[in-house]
Structures are given as structure tokens and as C-alpha cells.
Design a protein around this nucleic acid. Structure first.
Lengths: 243, 243
DNA sequence: CGATTGTCGAGAGCGGTGCTCTGTTTTTCG
DNA sequence: CGAAAAACAGAGCACCGCTCTCGACAATCG
């Protein structure tokens, strides 16, 4: 048929077969049940042969984690870019509901990404723009809001009155602004550190809510936790003064 | 010495020895490394003998989870009762810093309680007053604040203007008030559902923050994440209008 | 007090796991 | 075509959770 090296094609095919089987086992039975021998059995290979493709079970798991992270971030980004740029509350709720929906659809994969880190965890470098892509979305939304004056900056600063953030913390928050916006833009059009802190808080709040929802912490309170999550998103935005 | 049945004493001693060893292994190497054979080796018993005390590894783990939950809740309660009842922001930050401190001191045990639930998870009934003891503290603080008018109720209600919570959700929030305050007190001195929703949000925010801090999600942002956590606690209280 | 009963601990063993090593087969390339 | 390289299968090691059996001890009863 083709003069192309059949070996490389076969390798790619087997590799994806392994990943597919692993993802299936992961989704069905959780990470503890993901065993190299089981996937080898699944795809009709000797367990030792799988090691030609992934040097260890943990490496395979890491690959699944990275893929899951990508998928979740992509879902969030797709949802966020679909709403008009100046609808700030809409962008916020879009991110939250996208992450929440993805997490409910893939609870085990979500747990791998934002649940308890796996023992030998090593998110490559966890800079804000590869690992924390949804964090990036949130920060951008709040930066846009702060620069447009569509945030309760006075309320956010209220905590500052009696106990201001340390100079070091302010500096780190400014660094985050510079990283996201670019140094030049950040210098020309600064974002108050309180707003950046609020963005981190919003990011935290988002995953805290999704965690509690996916891991069943709301089940004893609400029979329809989705309703609470949706309302909570609006209430949090209102609290920030996001308009 | 004592005429008491020596057998029961020995049993209790062995039981606590098993739990201590298990807790040690858990703290050092995480839940995946907790093996019955290892603790048996540790305390000089045959692995099969351990089954006289705990019918399975998962049961032992559940016991450790329950104990950890108790310890964490106790730490939070002790810290909260130590501050004057009318210092509402102080009570809030006390709970948060207590939980945060405990979690940093016992990260693996914290992960068992509020991280990814273990595969065969079964928090007994997860009613608000046994499993969610720190949630109870938070709800009480916000209820006290709402009834004393020391909350930005208008801001909390802002989300309601355009998209009010469903009747069902309001009812569930009122149920929570009744459960915490008692039906009579709740009927006589009602708490607006928006305030209860804010309490749930605060509870969520607390554990979201502690999760991100303990699981290293802030490490790429702040070199001293404790400073952010402390500031974030004050900022969130200011946002709620907690005075 | 002596015999019975019940608990405890040890050991062997089953099926499972991750991972390594040794050969054998198959593909690729000089 | 023949040599080098890659892919695969199987056996094997150490470890795991868990079960079963069997001897030793304490607790209880006649």
C-alpha cells in the first residue's frame, strides 16, 4: 500500500490504543484500578511490551493527566471566547459552567488534575500559561474589569485599610499582572494588586466550588447542586461588583 | 496488679499500635504507601494477624480518615471559641487559619478528608453536624452576622435582582438554617437565604484556598503562600461586608 | 482445679500488581 | 541479501490484599 515506514504507523496506533484503554479504565474504575497489565490484557499484548511505549505506570498516568488538563482548559477557553468580550459576568460564568460541566462529565480525570495530587506529581513547571490556563482566563477577566472600572475596587480595598498586603505580596501580584499582560502593557496601564488578588480568589473559588460539587460535598445540602453552583457563580460576581 | 481482663488491654494496645504505625506511614509516604503488610512488619506481627483488628485495608483507612476529620474539626473549633463572639471577622479568620495550619501540618491526612475522595468513600451520612463541623462554624458566623446586620446583604442580593435563586434552592437554604439554628429559632428570627448561600460560598472558599495552598497550586504564584492566604481571608471578609 | 471454649498469632498460599531480564521474531537499512 | 535495530512474549522477582489452617494461650464453666 504505502511506502511509508509501517513501523512508525504501528507504533502510533499501539500508543493511542494504550492511551484509549487506559483512559477507559480510568473513567470506569478510577486511578487506583489503572494497571498496566489490565490495559495490556485489554489490547492483547504482553504486559512487558507496554513498557516499550511508556516507561512506567506513573508516566502513563502523567500523560493522561496532561491530556485531561488540556481537554478541560480547551473546554473552558472555547466557552469563554464564545461570549462577547465586554460581557464580563458572562465570561466569568461561562468559564465556571464549562469547567463544572467538563468535571462532571469526567470526574476521575478532573480529580487527577485538580484533586489530590498524585504522589509523584510533577506538573511540568506550573507557570500560569500552561498548567493554569483557566486561571489565566479568570485573571484576564478581572484585569479587564479593573481597567474598565467595572469592579467594586473600594470593597476589595476595604481589607487593605487595617491590614494591607505586604510589599512582597504586592510585588508578586504585580509580577502576575506583568506576566499575563506583558511588561510594557502592565507598566502603561497598571492593574491594582487588590484586583489581581481578587482574581486569584475567584480562581480559587471556582475550583473550590467545582471540587465540592464533583466530590459530593454539596450532596447533603442540595439535591440539585448544579442549581447552587449556578447561583453561587452569579452571587460571587455580584460580590466582586463585576458588571 | 489488676484483675481486669488482660486480653482487652492487650487488644487496645495492639490496636493503637496499628493505628499509630499506619498514621506514621500515611504521613510519610501518602495513602498509596499505606500497606497492611508494612504496618504488620513495623509492629512485629504477621500480616494476617492485623486482620483480627481491621477487616480490610480500606476499613483501616476509613478509621484514619474519621480520626483526621475529628482532629481538624477540633482544631478549628478550639481556635474559633477562643475569640470573642462579637468579633465576627476574627472568628472567620480564626477558623481559616486553624484549618490551614492543621492542613499544612498534616497534608496527607488533610488530603484524605478534603481532597479526592477515596474510591470506596463513605462519609457516614455527611450531615452538617458530624462530617461538616467546620462548615457548621462558618454558617453560624454568617448567621450571626446576618441577624446583626453586619453583612453586605444588598451586595449579596445583587445577584438576585436579575436571576433569583429558584424556590427550591431557597427552600433548601432555609432548611439549612433550620437545621443549624433549630426550627423554632429559625422561624422566629429568620436568616435571609442569600446570607446562607454566602455562608456556603465562604465554606467553599475556605477549603478551596486551603486545597490550593496545601496542594501547591499557589507555589508558582507566591513564594510565601501563607501571606496570600492570610490576606485573602481578610479580603473575602471585607467583600462579604463582615464587620 | 481441670476441661472446654474462644481468641490470638503465625505461616502458607492464591491471585493480583509493577517492573526487569532473556530470548525470539519482525522490520528497516546498508 | 545480510546485519542491525526495534518490537514482542514469556519467565521471574518482590510486593500487595486477603483467606485458610493450625498451634498456643487466656477466659470461662462444671
Amino acid at each position: 500500500m504505502t511506502a511509508a515506514p509501517t513501523r512508525a504507523l504501528a507504533r502510533a496506533a499501539v500508543s493511542t490504543a494504550i492511551l484509549d484503554s487506559a483512559r477507559r479504565h480510568l473513567a470506569e474504575s478510577g486511578p487506583a484500578a489503572l494497571s498496566l497489565r489490565a490495559v495490556a490484557r485489554d489490547i492483547g499484548m504482553a504486559s512487558s511490551a507496554v513498557y516499550r511505549y511508556f516507561p512506567s505506570r506513573d508516566r502513563l498516568l502523567e500523560r493522561l493527566i496532561a491530556d485531561a488538563h488540556d481537554a478541560m482548559s480547551a473546554a473552558a477557553e472555547a466557552a469563554e471566547t464564545a461570549v462577547p468580550r465586554d460581557d464580563l459576568p458572562g465570561r466569568w460564568t461561562a468559564v465556571l459552567t464549562a469547567v463544572h460541566g467538563w468535571a462532571r462529565a469526567h470526574p476521575h480525570e478532573y480529580a487527577l488534575v485538580y484533586g489530590t495530587p498524585v504522589p509523584g506529581y510533577r506538573p511540568p513547571d506550573m507557570t500560569m500559561d500552561d498548567a493554569g490556563r483557566v486561571g489565566l482566563l479568570i485573571v484576564r477577566i478581572l484585569q479587564d474589569a479593573a481597567r474598565a472600572g467595572r469592579l467594586h475596587l473600594d470593597a476589595l480595598r476595604a481589607a487593605t485599610a487595617e491590614a494591607p498586603p505586604s510589599d512582597h505580596l504586592r510585588h508578586e501580584l504585580d509580577m502576575l499582572t506583568a506576566e499575563v499582560l506583558g511588561a510594557a502593557e502592565a507598566a502603561e496601564n497598571p492593574v491594582p494588586p487588590e484586583a489581581v488578588a481578587a482574581a486569584v480568589a475567584a480562581w480559587t473559588h471556582l475550583f473550590g466550588t467545582v471540587n465540592f460539587s464533583v466530590f459530593g460535598q454539596y450532596d447533603s445540602l442540595f439535591c440539585d447542586s448544579d442549581a447552587y453552583v449556578a447561583f453561587s457563580a452569579r452571587q460571587f460576581a455580584a460580590l466582586l461588583g463585576l458588571t
